[in-house]
Amino acid sequence: MKDKYVELVEKHTPKEDIVKNATVSFLAGGVLGILSELLLRGYMMWFSLPRKEAGVVVILTLIVIASILTAFGVFDQCVSKLKSALIIPITGFAHSMTSAALEYRKEGMVLGIGANIFKLAGTVILYGIVSVYVFGIIRLIVMGG
């Protein structure tokens, strides 16, 4: 009886965690989306920015907030609670840079910060550029621009 119970618990525990994690990241990611939409409308209204520029300023705001939270050590605690809702938005990109810079600072300004600041963010930039070249050439050939 007890063995069966343990087996059942083991079968169900990770499954519930997956559902819970997915729900938490869905809700938290959605709230972050609403907040940045509010911020976007705010920037368009207060500074009378066009929509495109306001979008860039929203991204910059999130990057600066995420970097500061990382420097204070708060960001990692938030990630363990809110899961990938903070990793997938642009905040995760800023977090990876700031944490790499903080981590490797003790190895020096050039060989530490300089060599390692793109350690994690570099993959995003690398695969972004490579895929844009591939897709861009395809689109230029197929559609002519």
Partner: peptide, 12 residues
């Protein structure tokens, strides 16, 4: 809300 939440959920 739906799109940003959906993307985060998929990645999780």
């Amino acid at each position: 809300f739906l799109f940003c939440g959906f993307v985060c959920m998929i990645s999780q």
